[in-house]
């Protein structure tokens, strides 16, 4: 992978970063955010909008629609306009563009409005590839979400392509 004329994108610091858990982040799930997410997708099931319908269907409150794992508490000192880079140490050459490569979510328990989730992430793998868009750094990260009762409710694996 790193053979050839061009230097590898992956540094020793990045290799050492693999598996290192970042600081936990708090994600809130509330009725307004569930409705907003469901509306953006175009969900039509009333359980995502009407708490009575949700409870009649057996949920504690509005259930999180598929793909929704809460909204992080906004921190104005961390605000930035660019794409997410996955954080952590940076590659040997700047890669300013980013594409989402894939998302996988394993659900272990229900997530409903009123839940407060703690997310703990780490980079699981760095890989480099040459593609039609040039040098690509493929970053696979894993995030574990636990709820207010310390129950692991979801594990998300995300793939970001930086190029």
């Amino acid at each position: 992978m790193s053979d050839g004329d061009s230097e590898s994108l992956i540094t020793d610091e990045m290799r050492a970063h693999v598996g290192q858990e970042g600081s936990p982040t708090t994600y809130e799930v509330d009725k307004t955010s569930v409705r907003m997410f469901a509306r953006a997708v175009g969900q039509t099931d009333p359980v995502f909008y009407d708490e009575e319908a949700a409870q009649a269907a057996g949920y504690r409150s509005l259930p999180a629609p598929p793909g929704y794992l809460g909204t992080p508490i906004f921190d104005p000192t961390q605000a930035r306009g660019g794409p997410p880079t996955g954080g952590g140490p940076q590659p040997t050459r700047p890669l300013n563009r980013i594409l989402n490569g894939g998302t996988e979510i394993e659900h272990l328990d229900d997530i409903c409005a009123g839940d407060v989730l703690t997310a703990r992430s780490h980079v699981a793998n760095y890989e480099e590839r040459k593609g039609s868009i040039g040098d690509m750094l493929i970053v696979t990260s894993k995030t574990n979400y636990t709820n207010q009762n310390d129950t692991l409710v979801a594990v998300m694996t995300g793939t970001l392509i930086r190029y």
Binding site: D45, P63, P66, G102, H107
Partner: peptide, 22 residues
Amino acid sequence: HAFLGQLLHDWIGNEGRIKRFG
């Protein structure tokens, strides 16, 4: 991803659950 999640949700309803989806 969320569109495909809706496809699954609409199919299995509220008695069913998505265990894993990627």
